[in-house]
Amino acid sequence: MVSNRNVLFISSQETFSVHGMETKLKEMGYTSLYVPLEIKQLQEHADKGELIVYYMDETVSDDPAFLVFLKDLCMEKDKGLILIGAKEEYNVVVKTVPLDCVSAWFERPLDMRKFLQAVEKQFDSMAETLLRKTILIIDDDVAYMQTIREWLKESYQVAMVDSGVKAIKWLAINKADLVLLDYEMPITNGPQIFEMLKSDSDTGVIPVMFLTGQQSKESVLTAMKLKPVDYLLKTINKAQLKEKLDQYFAIQKGKL
């Protein structure tokens, strides 16, 4: 189990049902905190919970910006997310929040036993994940990042951000053992983000591997002049990528 067993409950109001779930979790040794559907409130309390339980209702589509913030929170801070509500409400949420961010979904009326089991399972999974190496993917292609995360999630702790600014913010409060960085990105490209990371004393020591769709010799040489630890083509498959990463960390371990 992880040492902190903190759960954030978000809903339009703290209903009798939400209060009942909080009570059951407290009986099992968890700490719970209710947060209303307000970005500012969730932002303020985000670090107080490792797992988010969203008790949905008919207001689920009233504030699209809130769902975008919830998506970013789950992706960037790797929060677990359990959804409770009707199929229609669930469909609204997963249009914005990637499915691989959703740990479990329950329809109402809630099966309390299965819900509590899902919470236990999520915290067990987080405890295992904490022992793994952490990889941060920086890419503006969210679908591609989700694919890579799906490939690696059984062996590594994987976080995702879609811009250099978000990467810097994420690394300010989190630790990464390796960065997979897209070489071609709009606004701030891969080399620029690489230079940003290397110019900072805290992030400068983090190893970086470039990911790119460019296969020309010129583009490879240009990228390697920046001295990343490796340069990977986006045509790489799951087995090849995992072998590359496993091999890299094995070599680093041998140097200790």
Rank of each mutant, 00 (worst) to 15 (best):
D78M: 08
E27Y: 13
I52Q: 04
S32I: 03
G20V: 10
L37C: 15
G80D: 08
V97G: 01
L99A: 12
D62W: 13
V94A: 03
A86N: 12
Y34H: 02
L33W: 09
L33G: 04
P109R: 04
D72R: 05
I82S: 05
D57T: 04
V53G: 06
E89D: 10
L70V: 11
M56R: 06
E88V: 11
P64Y: 13
S17I: 15
I52C: 08
G20P: 09
F106M: 06
V102S: 02
Q43K: 10
D100A: 04
E89L: 02
V35T: 01
D72P: 10
D72K: 07
S103D: 11
F106N: 00
P109S: 05
E44N: 14
L73C: 12
V60P: 12
E58A: 12
L110E: 08
T23K: 14
D100F: 04
M21E: 11
V92K: 12
I39K: 03
M75N: 10
M28I: 13
A104H: 07
L99C: 09
P36E: 00
I82T: 02
L73I: 03
M28F: 11
R108K: 11
D111P: 08
D111T: 01
T59R: 13
E58V: 11
M21L: 15
L67H: 07
L33Y: 09
L33F: 07
S103A: 10
T23S: 09
F106L: 05
L37E: 14
E76L: 01
L83K: 04
Q41R: 15
D47W: 08
K71N: 09
E89K: 01
K26Q: 15
R108L: 10
Y90M: 01
V97I: 04
L81K: 04
D78C: 03
D72A: 06
D57N: 06
P36C: 03
Y55S: 11
A104D: 12
L70R: 00
K40M: 05
D100W: 06
E44L: 11
L110Q: 06
V97W: 05
M56E: 02
I84T: 04
P109A: 03
S61I: 03
Y90F: 09
G29R: 09
E38L: 12
Y90I: 02
T96P: 01
I82W: 02
G80R: 10
V92S: 11
K71I: 07
Y54T: 04
L73H: 14
M112D: 12
E88R: 11
G85M: 02
K77W: 10
F69R: 01
V68F: 09
Q43G: 11
S17E: 15
M28S: 14
E44S: 10
E89S: 06
I82F: 04
L33I: 08
S32A: 10
V53Y: 00
E58I: 10
A104T: 00
G29L: 03
A86S: 15
K77M: 12
I39F: 03
Y30K: 08
L42F: 00
L83S: 05
V35M: 00
M112E: 15
T59D: 05
D111M: 05
C101H: 05
D72I: 01
E22A: 10
D47N: 15
L33K: 11
T59G: 05
N91M: 15
V60G: 07
V93E: 08
L110D: 09
L81D: 00
F106E: 06
K40G: 03
V35C: 04
V68S: 12
S103P: 02
T31I: 14
A104L: 09
T23F: 15
K95S: 03
